[in-house]
Amino acid sequence: MEPTIFDLILSKEIPADVVYEDDFVMGFKDVNPQAPVHVLFIPKVQIKTHNDLNADNMDYVSKIHLAINAYAKQIGVAEDGYRIVMNCNGQGGQTVFHIHMHFLAGRQMQWPPG
């Protein structure tokens, strides 16, 4: 697969404001934030879309969720609440084809989101 911008961030070829990192997941601030806190959490392996998840790579999604839980507690928004969004393909709003979860916090979220 051709490298995405997220792969270039993982390899440090493109700088990012990294706020979380472990052996499996990286979290960095979105360059176009939609909330006071907007962090993208990505696996350290390229999985193109949600449709490409399978038994061999599904653990990465669990690790992203655990990373988000830890980060929410670390920055003090776990109790107030936050939103997690994952888009899939064009009509779902996905623009970078390396799965990622948007973590949004710091304001009251509205429903429906759009």
Results as ranks from 00 to 15, higher is better:
Asp30Arg: 12
Leu10Phe: 11
Val45Ala: 13
Pro113Tyr: 08
Asp22His: 09
Thr95Ser: 15
Thr49Arg: 14
Leu53Asn: 04
Val39Gln: 01
Lys48Val: 14
His98Asp: 04
Lys63Ala: 07
Val18Glu: 13
Leu53Gln: 01
Glu2Cys: 09
Val25Ile: 12
Arg107Gly: 08
Met1Ser: 15
Asn54Tyr: 01
Ile64Gly: 04
Gln91Gly: 12
Val77Gln: 01
Leu104Cys: 09
Gln34Asp: 10
Pro33His: 11
Val85Tyr: 09
Tyr60Trp: 10
Asn57Ser: 10
Leu10Pro: 09
Asn57Met: 02
Ile75Asp: 01
Val77Asn: 08
Phe97Ala: 05
Tyr60Ser: 13
Tyr82Asn: 00
Leu10Gly: 08
His100Val: 02
Gln34Gly: 13
Phe24Tyr: 14
Lys73Arg: 13
Arg83Trp: 02
Ser62His: 00
Asp30Gly: 12
Gly106Val: 04
Phe6Thr: 06
Ile47Arg: 00
Pro3Arg: 15
Asp80Met: 09
His102Thr: 00
Ile42Met: 01
Lys73Met: 01
Lys29Ser: 04
Asn87Trp: 08
Leu10Thr: 08
His102Phe: 00
Asp80Arg: 08
His98Ala: 01
Phe97Ile: 05
Ile64Lys: 10
Ile64Arg: 02
Gln110His: 04
Glu2Asp: 15
Asn57Tyr: 02
Ile64Ala: 07
Lys12Thr: 04
Met26Tyr: 10
Pro15Phe: 05
Gly27Ser: 04
Met86Ile: 13
His98Ile: 02
Tyr60Met: 14
Cys88Arg: 10
Tyr82Leu: 00
Arg107Met: 01
Met26Ile: 00
Leu10Glu: 01
Ala16Arg: 07
Ile5Leu: 02
Val19Asn: 03
Glu79Phe: 11
Gln94Asn: 12
Gly76Arg: 08
Asn87Phe: 02
His102Leu: 10
Met58Asn: 11
Tyr20Asn: 08
Tyr82Arg: 03
Ile9Met: 02
Gly93Pro: 07
Leu66Ser: 15
Asp52Arg: 05
Ala67Val: 00
Ala55Pro: 10
Asp23Trp: 13
Gln34Met: 10
Asp30Gln: 09
